[in-house]
Amino acid sequence: MDKFIQIWGEFNFSLETYNTLLMTIVPLVFAYVIGLPLGILCVISDKNGIRPNKIANNILNVVVNLGRSIPFIILLVMLIPFTRLLLNTAIGPWAASVPLTIACIPFIARVVEQSLKEVDQGVIDASISMGATDFQIITRVYLVETIPSLIRGVAISAIALVGYTAMAGAVGAGGLGHIAINQGFFRNNMSVAFIACILIVVIVQVIQISLEFTAKKVDKKNIK
């Protein structure tokens, strides 16, 4: 136990856990700000959507697919000049949040799109027949009817982000991934790597369990 406390202090686990959480939450919020509208646009511009638009839909799909097809480790390096331009630095958790956000946007757009597509076409027809505007259909039908699914989507995105933070950590962002790889494995200090891994597992579990619990709690469709 003493050894554990000593390692904890020596490698500054508290700070790095905080950094990992920061690199998860900050990009998650920013990526949703852009990814959520993108996902909505994908759904409504689809040929079965409320505003079918083939050109817009194709452009959206190309952008989203391109964004998703670039491996994160490459994006991380590719975006260094952009990050410098934006924040004047390319190292540290805040700087890493830039590529993390950009990598996450297309991912979230797809996750949101999948959720919204769960709404039955009949419900949309019914809303139209009641005189709903496009905006009302989005805000009062699509986003409300799929709340449990959207919450599960947040869990999927957040957990993917935790994984990305480890990669960012390896190249100067800090965080638990940085400790596990640079201080742990590379210096053959396995107990340090082990503690870092356990902490990452705990973070992922907390995200998964708490959001799944919330999703179940708010879901009125699957109640018995």
Binding site: D120, G122, V123, D125, S129, G131, K220, K221
Partner: peptide, 22 residues
Amino acid sequence: LRNFRKNIGVVFQGYNLLMQKN
């Protein structure tokens, strides 16, 4: 058209209710 729609009510075979609302 949207304003006119209040003159026509539609009931569907599959109910098409909002499942997250009471």
